[in-house]
């Protein structure tokens, strides 16, 4: 079964130098189980191919049903150096919510 991340979670993203952080929050416990089990570092890395050029760190915050991803080497130099329209990675949380997860029934 395919599940759209947008339907089960929301989030927020921002900058930490040239790295972006993307926090993804599930709307309920069931949603958190899904993102915890399926939204792996590898899945996120593949999704952001061509955007995130470095490593990804993944952290779990079960207390608020959230995962936090730190995407290194992502913002074109970051801060004022970056030529990107979205130099602060503000739209990357929305970009991750485009993802469809393959989940067993």
């Amino acid at each position: 079964m395919k599940i759209k991340l947008l339907d089960i979670a929301h989030g927020r993203s921002g900058d930490k130098g040239d790295a972006a952080n993307v926090g993804i929050i599930a709307y309920d416990d069931k949603g958190y189980e899904i993102i915890k089990n399926h939204l792996s570092k590898e899945v996120v890395k593949k999704h952001f191919e061509g955007i995130c050029l470095g490593n990804i760190d993944r952290y779990e915050l079960p207390n608020i049903r959230a995962l936090n991803f730190v995407l290194h080497n992502t913002l074109g130099g970051g801060g004022t150096v970056s030529l990107k329209l979205d130099a602060q990675g503000k739209t990357l949380a929305a970009a991750l919510l485009r993802l469809e997860l393959d989940v067993e029934n």
Partner: peptide, 10 residues
């Protein structure tokens, strides 16, 4: 919650 995850690392 959205603000809690904003610009955090570990």
């Amino acid at each position: 919650s959205e603000q809690l995850v904003y610009e955090i690392g570990d």
